[in-house]
């Protein structure tokens, strides 16, 4: 068995969106290097509950790095020190005895803190609802192989589609920009033939919603790409910008009564 060790946590505690928060220090004792980071927090929380104190609230669900629910800023880095790794997949072997660890929620105007390390990312859902889809009502599509898609495009679309919507990109960005997230969806759908009919409408609508949610703008710091646990690339932002410029230049209002019959 690997040797267990002790840590000190400095955790952001905040009762709800209306209250102010503050850092509180907690010891984390007898931690196994095989534990995941969230299992370490489980141990601390079990101790707090037994003492009658409120446990540290944090979002988590699949604990496999795919659902995108978890995420906290660990020592100043979203999801912690390990590249391409969500908080739930971070393991305690990345730390050593006596380490001090500071834990904060994602910090962005668009993500109000609900409690402690838990934030409201509803803005992301609203951006998708504004246009992050292909309108393909159930029952209408043609055979799946009717439209061949070059493997290269399918693979690039998949690269972009791998986004888990965790919002680490926003937390990492000095401008709290959501452009990596938004551009990943725009890229995925723009790379596929099925996404063409709504391509320019989509980019306009999604960006309008992104702005309405008060996310900042990209100024090419590249922090988002470094923080992304799924390796989503900034080239998606370039692709989105290209489409957005084209959409803006070629914009024509919908024909009134165009489809009436």
């Amino acid at each position: 068995m690997a040797k267990h060790f002790n840590l000190t946590l400095h955790v952001w505690r905040q009762k709800n969106a209306k209250c102010d928060g503050k850092f509180v220090e907690y010891p984390a004792e007898n931690i196994s290097p095989d534990m995941s980071f969230l299992e370490m927090l489980d141990v601390v929380n079990e101790g707090l509950i037994r003492k009658g104190e409120e446990p540290i609230a944090f979002d988590h669900d699949c604990r496999e790095g795919i659902c995108g629910t978890c995420g906290m800023v660990v020592n100043g880095r979203p999801h912690g020190p390990k590249e391409r790794t969500t908080t739930c997949q971070l393991h305690m072997r990345s730390f050593k005895d006596g380490d001090n660890i500071t834990l904060e929620p994602w910090r962005a105007e668009a993500f109000p803190v609900l409690k402690d390390l838990m934030v409201d990312r509803g803005a992301f859902d609203r951006i998708i609802a504004a246009g992050g889809f292909i309108s393909a009502p159930t029952g209408s599509p043609q055979d799946a192989n009717a439209l061949p898609i070059p493997k290269e495009n399918a693979d690039l679309a998949m690269d972009a589609a791998a986004c888990i919507g965790c919002a680490a990109c926003v937390a990492a960005c000095p401008n709290a920009s959501a452009m990596l997230f938004v551009s990943a969806k725009i890229s995925q759908l723009a790379l596929l033939p099925q996404g063409q009919p709504e391509r320019y409408l989509r980019v306009r609508d999604m960006i309008a919603q992104m702005d309405a949610e008060e996310f900042g703008t990209c100024t090419n710091h590249g922090e988002c790409e470094t923080a992304c646990p799924k390796g989503i690339k900034m080239e998606n932002i370039a692709r989105m910008n290209r489409d957005f410029i084209k959409a803006s230049l070629t914009y024509r209002p919908a024909t009134i009564g165009g489809g009436a019959g």
């Binding site: 889809f133 043609q142 055979d143 192989n145 061949p148 493997k151 399918a154 693979d155």
Partner: peptide, 22 residues
């Protein structure tokens, strides 16, 4: 079979071969 058609229509990036087929 309808499911695969539906999902491709929605833009699900299934794995493809070099010829572009699923």
């Amino acid at each position: 079979n309808n499911i695969i058609d539906q999902c491709v229509g929605q833009g699900v990036p299934f794995a493809r071969e070099y010829g572009g087929l699923l």
